[in-house]
Design a protein around this nucleic acid. Sequence first.
DNA 1: AAGGTGACCCTAT
DNA 2: CATAGGGCCACCT
Length: 126
Amino acid sequence: MTTYDRIYAVVRQIPPGTVATYGQVAALAGLPGRARLVGYALFRVTLPSTDIPWHRVINAKGEVSHSPQRRGTDHIQAQLLADEGIEREANGRINLRRYGWTPPGEKTGPSEESATECIPFWKPSL
DNA sequence: AAGGTGACCCTAT
DNA sequence: CATAGGGCCACCT
């Protein structure tokens, strides 16, 4: 079990129709303050990925992180998010308060939560 | 086995 | 809003 494996394990939990930030994934993987590492790990994901919903990870500003190094996979990411019904705001950014993933066990107001084993299916659309 | 190599985040100006 | 700077490593040659 490598460090990256722990990161991938968290990403696998992100349900369809929601997004998580790099920093959020890092913290959930037990790597607080190492958001950058998540980016490094996701860069190494070999596409098409059958089991890692890599596209559901965006930056803290609600944007898909663009980079020439990504060889166009950033555009694919935006498309996959749109396909899941995630809409952009007028400013082009994704509203994290609306689509941000609230992992099981987070305090989000007065409501309770059940420890549901969240294993989202992942359609190999790539 | 040492160095190159990347999808980040926060605070301050 | 743009820019800067400091903090952040593990993986793969």
